[in-house]
Design a protein around this nucleic acid. Sequence first.
DNA 1: GTCTATAGACGGATAGAC
DNA 2: GTCTATCCGTCTATAGAC
Lengths: 204, 204
Amino acid sequence: MTPRGRRPGGEDTRAHIVEVARTEFAAHGYDRTSLRGVARAAGVDPALVHHYFDGKTDLFTAAMTLPIRPAEIVARVTAAEPGQVGASVVRTFLTMWDEPSRHERMLAVVRSAMSDEPAARMLREFLDQAVAGPIAEFYAPEGERNAVGASLTAATLTGIAIGRYLVRFEGLPDASVEELIERVGPAIQGYLGPRRPHAEADQG
Amino acid sequence: MTPRGRRPGGEDTRAHIVEVARTEFAAHGYDRTSLRGVARAAGVDPALVHHYFDGKTDLFTAAMTLPIRPAEIVARVTAAEPGQVGASVVRTFLTMWDEPSRHERMLAVVRSAMSDEPAARMLREFLDQAVAGPIAEFYAPEGERNAVGASLTAATLTGIAIGRYLVRFEGLPDASVEELIERVGPAIQGYLGPRRPHAEADQG
DNA sequence: GTCTATAGACGGATAGAC
DNA sequence: GTCTATCCGTCTATAGAC
């Protein structure tokens, strides 16, 4: 019957809208998610969504925001033995994907980042805080950074997320976390280690 | 003045539309590209686009199609020394991205694959033909396949393309092809080599 | 706090004239 | 082969009644 007017309980409709929006963004990406669709799925009026949020971008931001604690991640990474940092990074990342509170957010951001610039910025910032930053902290507290190595790490993790959760490359969705750590860890380790190819690289 | 009626020369308007469409899809992704926008950019009437193509999906397919020759790729990969197959794969892939005839197509497919299922299918098929197939051919002509290894390779290459050409991770757009080959080659090599972790794997 | 109503724009698609 | 005209759907956003 869709009762009109103020909702019975004083429950948090706003929070409900945010939740539904997150699910929609995760499932369809930014472009294909409409405020009307969110309103429909949430069982509220489209105008109510506008009442709470400035617009689509605002709703997206509200639905995605969940602070990450770089310090925590640094702690996890630095707890690993030097030779196991690659594996530790992979484990940390895959674990984040498996946290229910983060899964949909990450899905939505990656899906949307390919065509929406604000979403792309969010992806870059996330990777910077959750991957590149902690790594730099570990390997070069002084300030020297291996930017390409960090970016290759971020790229690898992004590609795996896409192959595993979005586009579904053969075998990836069903691979165990342990198998992935075992196979990808060494690759990451290689990106992060010191470079000395055929140039002079004595110390730092 | 936008002359009416049939165009002066008998030039191939259809081909022109396809070209323009490819550029639009590459720049904005599937969702944000409209037939009207394509028509506008091509200087033709929107109805003409419908005259040539069944719909948006049809136009997309027409704009993306460019046969790849697995045999060629196999030849390039198999020409490498066994220890250099990883580097060879990376070089082959990055070279394809740099071919002008392919660059926009690949950009468009990757951009679109995150939210459009037909585009996702195209991406899977491309990676299967251009990466997984040739690799399998090289390592296991008999039919045994290292599916996860091939998928991890595909995921890595996809992630690098995204970081280098789409989302622009720090340092990746400016990295030289040689540096990428040098750093990523060994990682790919690791995915493709035989696995013998802690299970029995005598021959195969 | 919630809804009705509507403005204003753009999308894909089609029928048919020239 | 090309364009006019139009249908019908969807979207974001706003003003204002209850």
